[in-house]
């Protein structure tokens, strides 16, 4: 190359009084310093991140360890635990199905409320609502999402159940029942379904809607046949997360669904869910290392496994959804 021709000619220019740079000492200065303070801080911050790992390990370890103790109790074995339809520790019956069944029933009722209403509300907010209506309705849903679950439990027991008993007759509906708990749980979960679905719907590009309108589709046809299908995996992710939330919900069922395991498919009868059982047993003064105490951990492990699986599935789906549109 011909760059040889412009060798510097200005080297001898005087250094101005302000000019403090350009001393040969600088070259040594370029060398890395240890900066122990920075290192220490980074180490501390990494530790902060790692606390979450320790939490998970703690959960898995403690649940696993105590569950193992539970299954070592002579009356208990894994097969019976998973298939037995009676939970009566006093006579040595440890079948978890009544608890699981009650959990499924409250969850099912909750989902029958939360999923259709949540999705419909999401469609309204993302496709129809004026900014003003949105600005009013969104905070309402946020407040609903922020109300403590014990308050919902109170609501289920003192309002929803009496209401059901008035409508359907107090012979049909027991004072504690899974239907009322599920109904109120559905209201509690509605905001979650709505906001996650709305995010998914909003992520669908405008161009897709415009394409549909351009071919003469109405707003409803566009929403239901173009936008919703395009956002489907995001919406399903919301649904799955809602199920996980319902399975893990404690206070509503502890107050309104009934205490005492009961293997029934009648939603108007009392039945205890997994979470309700854990809350009841631990609320009393139960001695350490009794089968009762250990059973909390076995059921907790089951609960943890179910919700974790649902959460992971939900995250996978929504990650796939994001890949498509972002």
């Amino acid at each position: 190359m011909e760059q040889e021709m412009f060798r510097p000619t200005q080297q001898t220019q005087a250094i101005s009084p302000f000019d403090v740079h350009a001393s040969s000492a600088l070259i040594a200065n370029l060398r890395k310093r240890p900066r122990w303070g920075e290192r220490f801080i980074q180490g501390f911050l990494f530790f902060c991140g790692a606390v979450s790992i320790l939490t998970t390990l703690g959960i898995v370890f403690e649940l696993g360890k105590e569950s193992l103790l539970f299954f070592q109790t002579p009356e208990v074995n894994l097969i019976e635990f998973l298939t037995g339809t009676k939970w009566q520790p006093t006579i040595g019956e440890f079948g978890v199905l009544p608890l699981v069944n009650a959990t499924l029933m409250t969850t099912l009722v909750a989902m029958l409320v939360a999923l259709p209403l949540g999705l419909a509300a999401a469609i309204y907010l993302s496709e129809y609502a004026s900014p003003k209506a949105r600005g009013f309705l969104k905070p309402i849903l946020e407040i609903l999402a922020g109300i403590p679950t014990v308050v919902y439990g109170y609501f289920a027991l003192t309002f929803m159940t009496p209401l059901l008993r008035t409508i359907l007759g107090s012979e049909t509906v027991q004072i504690y029942n899974t239907f009322s708990a599920g109904l109120v749980m559905g209201i509690m979960i509605l905001p979650l379904v709505c906001s996650m679905s709305e995010d998914a719907l909003n992520a669908v590009p405008r161009a897709l809607r415009e394409a549909a309108y351009g071919m003469g589709a109405t707003k409803l046809e566009t929403a239901l046949q173009v936008v919703v299908p395009a956002a489907l995996s995001g919406i399903i992710a919301a649904f799955i997360l809602a199920i996980s939330r319902a399975v893990g919900e404690t206070m509503i069922v502890a107050l309104a669904a009934g205490s005492g395991p009961n293997f029934t498919f009648n939603p108007f009868k009392a039945a205890e869910t997994m979470t309700g059982y854990i809350a009841r047993i631990s609320g009393g003064d139960v001695g350490y290392d009794t089968p009762d105490y250990n059973s909390i951990f076995a059921i907790g492990l089951l609960l943890f496994t179910i919700t974790l699986a649902l959460n992971i599935l939900s995250r996978k789906l929504s990650a796939r959804f994001r890949e498509v549109y972002e």
């Binding site: 403690e62 939330r245 959460n311």
Partner: peptide, 30 residues
């Protein structure tokens, strides 16, 4: 390791609160 930490935090956010109660009972109380 960082990806694991991130995924782990996201999943922990979805663990039912009662499970934290069980953890607290086993570790901090006992």
């Amino acid at each position: 390791i960082n990806r694991i930490i991130q995924t782990n935090i996201d999943n922990l956010a979805g663990v039912p609160s009662i499970v934290y109660g069980i953890l607290g009972l086993a570790i901090f109380v006992r």
